[in-house]
Design a protein around this nucleic acid. Structure first.
Lengths: 187, 187
DNA sequence: TATTTTAGTAAACATTCGTTCACCTTGTCA
DNA sequence: TGACAAGGTGAACGAATGTTTACTAAAATA
């Protein structure tokens, strides 16, 4: 087992337990006997910038828990490993305020026009106020639905992004529960 | 500072350092003096299922690092906190094989029709083989582009999801570099 | 009011932590 | 062939870890 395979094992441990393994745990993980072996291995990872060590405690760097972002596609692709790459965590990218956010599975095709399809997961941030243009989770006829908020002469209108659905003009005050901040789709 | 505010602080620490704080660190974090106070607080979190303790080591449960998934929107929303909820990590949801995946920022509007818009981030899994219907990252005229792979009489065709782009019939062998497994959009 | 529970301090504990030093084997390279 | 670096074992170290017990003050409860 070479060093990069070991890193892979540590990664697995991390995504399973959500914490970095201790030296003793890595001993078992790598099938070694002496803690000093681990110490040297980890030291290399730290030098390579794969693992961060803050007063004797280890944590993974973005290279371990997030994906490389290739800014543009060019000839000669795939980019060499040495190149400067951004590493991006999708969780952090999509969710700015985890404490007030939740996910919702989209069931209707009313937002097709803006690329939100049935089956998509949307990240909703709890809010009672929204601006024109926001995609909002709002209450219409005692049902919660996703619509685009727009304003006509200072009055709120909820429109779809699909011509088969008519706009909705709320008669009383508009109940908004949250606004959509992100979309995630698996395919 | 009450107990849930403390949990929030621990969460913050976790998303910043990618590891759970030690008792000593929590002392500073919460402004307390005795480690026993921390011990009791953590014990409650463990009993509530917010934190996992495996032979004296702490790690967050999905409730801490992922978002609640509200399966369906219904009257009486928002769902009471007691209800059975799924917790989902977007990272895990979108990326099945992190070791062979990367992100790509979409620049063209050629996949509009299937809800992949310019500015979206796509999760690409490295592969050289693909099936009909897959969205692939392929080489066309010495450029890498995203297209939908289809077959016409056993021959591969790369089509767009936008009528203004014609289908591409590769004359020689088709170079596929990866297939798109997920889409992430911030709005 | 009397009593019990809750939430914290304080000190002592064994265990585990990461680190260091000495040593050994193996393969590489001049 | 000889020197040397790389990669590992093994033992010992102080420091930091989570745990336990005893005690106290405040808050909740009867």
């Amino acid at each position: 087992m070479d060093n990069s395979q070991r890193l892979e094992k540590a990664k697995e441990f991390y995504s399973k337990h959500r914490r970095f393994p201790s030296y003793a745990e890595m001993l078992k993980l790598f099938g070694l006997v002496s803690k000093n072996a681990i110490y040297k291995i980890v030291q290399k990872w730290v030098e390579e910038g794969l693992v961060a060590k803050i007063n004797r405690k280890l944590s993974p760097t973005p290279k371990l828990f997030s994906l490389p972002l290739l800014g543009f596609v060019k000839a000669g692709f795939p980019a060499a490993a040495d190149e400067e790459l951004d590493f991006l965590s999708l969780e952090d990218y999509l969710v700015a305020h985890p404490e007030s956010s939740f996910l919702l599975k989209v069931r209707s095709d009313s937002l097709n026009g803006i690329g939100i399809l049935p089956g998509d997961l949307v990240v909703v941030e709890k809010r009672t106020q929204a601006s024109a243009g926001d995609v909002v989770l709002a209450r219409i006829d005692s049902e919660w639905t996703l619509k685009i908020l727009q304003k006509e002469k200072e009055k709120a209108v909820l429109v779809s992004a699909n011509p088969i659905y008519p706009p909705f003009y709320p008669q009383e005050e508009l109940q908004i529960f949250g606004i959509v901040k992100g979309v995630a789709r698996k395919l």
